[in-house]
Design a protein around this nucleic acid. Structure first.
Lengths: 139, 139
DNA sequence: TGTATTCCCTACTAAATCGATAGGGTTAAT
DNA sequence: ATTAACCCTATCGATTTAGTAGGGAATACA
């Protein structure tokens, strides 16, 4: 299941990408527009900022803004920040690899074989999709 | 993340498919061979039996057996029984569809668009894979 | 300089899920 | 009758998830 965190995060990023002006967008506005609990969203955007996807400005007229053009923000990066590993099992993860306790030989493991395929296909989607695709922005 | 339940279930099915004889295979044997907690595995095989994928025989020399040839057991079915919906969000699920509370229009939802693609690709893998592929059985 | 606004950060909590165990009931072979 | 096996329900501890609380720090602007 996709976590609410990821879902809200994607919606927020889309919202920011669609906002016309160059002004930073406030948490409160996004929360209201997208029906997201404000305090919860605050934490999510904080995570996205720490990962370098968003920038922020404090104080009056502050808010969050994209650090790159929507077309340069890949879903692989966003998903890894929000949802964690893309693979369904650690022994198949590119970025968070971990050996299984059971399983003497990965190459003989039926689960491994199947999950590699799922990972590759999911990765293909995330690699070919940017925030511009999500937000219908052409930039 | 793939649940242990699914992982164990897939390993158990593979084990049964690979077992040469036509005799039912006992939980205890699978548990020992695949390093799975026996009681936990018991519940999993029960689920697979209730769903019609496995059959069982009680009493001495009892155990579990496949109800169909490995090449006829599709991963779509197995995964739905063990892991639940294949889609990452209910609003994208074919078999367990549910509308989102937020989200006035699905067709405009950026998350929806992305998750449809992931679902389609995952589904493609599961539809094209059978237990025969997992177990290297040619039947 | 003061004040409102906005992000920043930590801690906490309720509920759900997961992984696993316990313990007995039922059926079938010998 | 005994034993081997599945059948079924309940329970439990740990972890994760979704969300809340509350105060701190920076900035705009009067």
């Amino acid at each position: 299941m996709l976590s609410k965190k990821t879902k809200y995060g994607l919606k927020a990023l889309t919202f920011i990408a669609r906002s016309e002006s160059d002004m930073p967008v406030q948490v409160s506005l996004i929360a209201k527009s997208e029906q997201i609990p404000p305090k919860f969203l605050e934490g999510i955007l904080l995570t996205l900022r720490k990962s370098g996807i968003l920038g922020s400005k404090k104080g009056k007229h502050g808010g969050y803004y994209l650090r790159h053009k929507p077309s340069e923000i890949k879903m692989t990066d966003v998903m890894r920040v929000l949802e964690g590993p893309i693979a369904m099992v650690p022994c198949v993860s590119l970025n968070y690899y971990e050996k299984c306790d059971d399983c003497p030989d990965e190459n003989l493991c039926s689960v491994h074989k199947l999950m590699v395929q799922v990972r590759d296909n999911t990765l293909k989607v995330f690699r070919n999709t940017t925030l511009a695709d999500l937000s219908n922005t052409n930039v």
